[in-house]
Every structure is written in structure tokens, then in C-alpha cells.
Write a protein that binds this DNA or RNA. Structure first.
Lengths: 152, 152
DNA sequence: GATGAAAAAATTTGCGG
DNA sequence: CCGCAAATTTTTTCATC
């Protein structure tokens, strides 16, 4: 968890692994003209430093029938209801992200649903049943042309 | 890319790999009481079906000095400027996600920055230099209490 | 389809520069 | 800190049920 200043080699390794975490170390070694052992050492260091948090498979939600992605701006009646509201939102599996924000909304959430009908169901029968919510505003995402991670 | 109806075993494997893509197949095999070969076959099938898209390391942007996360609602002067605007936004590494949305904004983007100063710089010297943009509205995220993927 | 063992490949460790 | 190579672990294949 300490600070560790990454160098160019670390950066290159990170880039490669962010694209494909299963790239063999031997291949990275060849690509960056170092040994596989060195790649291993660097990766371990970045894990230790808390830079690399884990490795996950990424799935195509569409292939699993989740077609609708939307953002919902939520306004609360009272700011003090924030923790309780988050807890309730966490119980709805369709809510995949939540942000506590400054600006127009108190909470900003991302919801994945199977269809417009399903989204409507989530909105009416789940989200809008939360007492503390005053109003919501929905932005349906038709397309996500950019989707990547920050690249230091 | 065809349709493939996943069963409970597939779902369990998916859950495990979404949490940690490096879980050895032998361990999953023990956990789900099947053989390692079966795990392998199922994973390959889900790859073939386009359900598993790839594996990526997840990094902690904070550890790399990216402290500020924000959303920006963008309004365009003309809807026809959409493709060109996306192209320009793509050139700014701080723009990590972009959505084409219905509702209050034409485009909705997520931006990661090193600091409030850096964010201001991105806003003024990058995003707002795009001719086609009429107005923007910024929501700064103070916290992200929920962050997960959809779990079929 | 699933299994389990054998073969191939990749990761990890430790010694020596 | 790096490289090399041995030791270990994991993935992949395949004949068989």
C-alpha cells in the first residue's frame, strides 16, 4: 500500500496486462527485452504496492441478455439518508455502480437491465420504493463508443 | 457469437472468474465438484459464445495518482456532430467512458483526473475546445460506494 | 458431455552476476 | 536489480466411460 513510483517498464507491463491479463510473461519478456523473471518481479511489486488490485474476466453483458444500460440521477429528501439509501440500492443486483456526487444529483447510479420492460420494473418496483428518494432522472445509454481505463 | 444458454455450473464459474480470473481450474473443480477438464471446457465454450470477452488486471487509479473521478453531461449544437465529437474525445486520455444517451444530455462522459486542477485543465483546454459542444455540466464524484458487474 | 491422467506450457523460486 | 535455469503449478489434450 505504500507509494511506489512506476517506471517505463512497469508502465508497459501494466498496459499489456490491462489489455490481456493472461499474456504469458515470456512473451512480455521478449517484447520488452527483459527476462520472464523480471516481469514476474515487477508484477509482484505492483501488486504489493496496491496498484494491481486483481484480475477479472470481462463479460459481454449483451450476450447474457442485458441489453439496456442507463444512468439515473437520484435526489434525496435529506442528505442524511445517504448511507441507508446506498445500502438499499446495493440490494438491487441491477444497480452496478453508485457515485456520491456534487452537482445536480445527490447520488448517481448505473443500472443494467434485460430490456426496457425490465428497466421500468427496476425503476418502479425497486428504486422508487425507497422512501428517502425525492426524485429521479433517467438517461438511457444507446451506445458506449468509449470504454477504457485510465492509462498513466 | 451464437446464443448459448448458460447453466448453473457456467454461472458459478463466471462468478468466480469475475472475482478472480486467476483462480486455478483445479480449485474451481474442487469447489463445484467436477473435474478440471470440465471447467476448462465450460470456459472455452463461454469464450466461443462471446460471453467471456477477455481478462484484464484491474488497477487502483488512486495509487497511480488519479484521485478525481467525474461525469460530464455534454450538449451538442447539432446532433450530426456526434461522431466527430466522439472522435475528438477519444483523443483525450482522461476521457475513459462515453455514452450516447437519451434525456438531458447528448453525450455523457466519465473523466479521470489527477487533481481538481488537472480536471479544470481537461475541461477548459481539452473538452471545451471542441467546437460542436454547446454546453457541459459537471458532476464530481466524491465516493463510489457501489462498483460491480452485472451478475446473471 | 464428463473424467482423469499424461503432456505441454507457464509461473515461481533461488543462485550467481 | 537482473538473468538464468530448475522446481512447481497450471493449463490443455485425449482416450475412455
Amino acid at each position: 500500500m505504500e507509494n511506489y513510483q512506476i517506471d517505463n517498464l512497469d508502465r508497459s507491463i501494466l498496459h499489456a496486462l490491462m489489455d490481456n491479463a493472461r499474456t504469458p510473461y515470456a512473451e512480455l519478456a521478449k517484447r520488452f527485452a527483459v527476462s520472464a523473471g523480471t516481469i514476474h518481479v515487477r508484477v509482484e511489486k505492483m501488486k504489493q504496492a496496491g496498484i494491481i488490485v486483481g484480475t477479472r474476466v470481462s463479460i459481454d453483458a449483451k450476450q447474457l441478455g442485458y441489453d439496456v444500460c442507463c444512468f439515473i440521477g437520484v435526489n434525496l429528501k435529506h442528505a442524511r439518508d445517504y448511507p441507508a439509501t446506498i445500502e438499499q440500492l446495493e440490494g438491487f443486483e441491477e444497480v452496478v455502480e453508485a457515485y456520491y456526487t456534487t452537482g445536480n444529483y445527490s447520488i448517481f447510479i448505473k443500472v443494467m437491465a434485460r430490456s426496457i420492460d425490465h428497466l421500468q420494473d427496476v425503476l418502479i418496483n425497486k428504486i422508487q420504493t425507497i422512501e428517502a428518494i425525492q426524485s429521479t432522472e433517467t438517461l438511457i445509454s444507446l451506445q458506449a463508443p468509449i470504454m477504457r481505463e485510465v492509462m498513466p
